[in-house]
Amino acid sequence: MQAGPQQDHTLASLSRVTHRYGPVVALDGLDLEVRRGEVLGVLGPNGAGKTTAISLLLGSLGVQEGAASVFGCAPGAPEVRVRRGAMLQISGISANLTVREHIELFRAYYPAPLPAARLLAMAGLEDLAQRRYGKLSGGQKQRVMFALALAGDPELLFLDEPTTGLDVDARHRLWSEIRGLRESGRTTVLTTHNLDEADALADRVVVIHNGRRIAEGTPAEIKSRTAGRLVRCVTRIRPDEVAGLPGVVEARTRGRHLETLTTQPEDLVRELLARDEALADLTVVAAGLEDAFLALTRDTK
């Protein structure tokens, strides 16, 4: 019943959207709200339904159940298309056209495009304008995609996993370009499975898992809630004995090791050492993303 009248500052929304591909449920009653001027990070592991959500907001998928709205219109409406841009996970555009040619073509689609020189500058492509797309590196290609998404001077920008497959340098370079967007007053929806990326770029993060929204907040809030640690040790203590301890999200046996996921590692270590003097091979590591999401899932129960 959240689908009340949208507030002024809401640019786009999904309300109780369920989407199925045959028997597979990709989105399960998802609510999502994009507010004017923010960078919204949609965070989730691969297969969580991020791309499906973006596709519904772009209108490239039809809504099966629930409602989707962008600028108060249907997501695919022509008046919407001219006001937004998108960077999708695609394997590439024509290798035989130059960067400038691609940009000119996309600029032609929009009534008030950004100047080509400005787009080249924003994407850091000034020196590559005459190069054919096929001759660019992966990072350069993503920057071309970025420039194309900006071609129409969009108010709303969708970036679907923009840094996938890039090395660290290229990723940071693109990050800095995306950060520039916020200053220009644009609204950005960014999907990522990388918490650091969401942290680096987003004002607000929505975490999706198995097609549901499992958490929402500032990156700092999310980070703190996912700041779990994995405590591994060889011990005679069984998982069920630690499961009830404060902060423990999950405990399991893997090989000889007991693995315990917890948000309060110091308390747990203290407790473990107290209960088993013979405990050996103790390590405490940051939880992986899967585990972090797992933690969030438990939290929301």
Binding site: E104, R107, A108, P113, P115, A116
Partner: peptide
């Protein structure tokens, strides 16, 4: 705009 016109 200018270059698009030119291309057209």
């Amino acid at each position: 705009m200018k270059s698009a016109r030119h291309l057209v």
